[in-house]
């Protein structure tokens, strides 16, 4: 009855948002960047047994300029924090961040002078994954959730590039 009946087979109707989001989530290129223990589990997720290629994500980019997903895998020390911030700034938009593990999310068991208490103090985070370190299944779950989140976005949205949490002054 509707318009769809009259269009030829080779034409599909959709929305711009859907197509853009679908293509963004289907070949997301993570940034090959490991900090600590969680990085080993991240490599395990990319390797043979868990095989992240199933989600179109096996291409690890060693350069931030070619990546659109940053997985902060491990504790961020105060010395590393400016480097992480800089790497994030170098990534082209749109970009997403997964904070993998307790240390990256909130400092974990290390509440001390050397460790940044959560990477969300310096960069905005989309998905937090608990665990110390999270199992590869947990990381995959986080990635699938990120995919779902990407599908709800709109190309008109303005993305935040600054963290929401208050940055405390040291000492």
């Amino acid at each position: 009855m509707g318009l769809e009946e009259n269009i030829p087979d080779s034409i599909i109707l959709t929305t711009v948002d859907y197509v853009v989001n679908w293509s963004r989530k289907s070949s997301m290129w993570p940034f090959g960047f490991g900090l600590a223990c969680c990085a080993i589990e991240m490599i395990a997720t990319f390797a043979a047994h868990f095989d992240l290629a199933r989600f179109g994500m096996e291409v690890m980019r060693p350069s931030p300029r070619q990546a659109d997903l940053m997985i902060v895998a491990g504790r961020v020390s105060n010395k590393m924090a400016p480097v992480v911030k800089r790497l994030y700034d170098q990534m082209p938009n749109p970009k997403w961040v997964i904070s993998m593990g307790a240390c990256a999310s909130c400092g974990g068991i290390f509440n001390n002078y050397a460790i940044l208490q959560g990477v969300d103090r310096i960069i905005p985070v989309d998905i937090y994954i608990p665990g110390c370190p999270p199992r590869p299944e947990q990381l995959i779950d986080g990635i699938v959730r990120l995919h779902k989140k990407v599908m709800t976005e709109s190309v008109k949205d303005k993305r935040e590039t600054q963290p929401q949490r208050i940055v405390s002054k040291k000492g």
């Binding site: 909130c106 400092g107 509440n111 001390n112 002078y113 050397a114 208490q117 405390s168 040291k170 000492g171």
Partner: peptide
């Protein structure tokens, strides 16, 4: 500034949330 392993150096600056 300061020397972390000295006993008068505080372990942490922040109360956990």
């Amino acid at each position: 500034e300061g020397w972390p392993h000295r006993k008068d150096f505080p372990l942490t600056y922040e109360a956990p949330q």
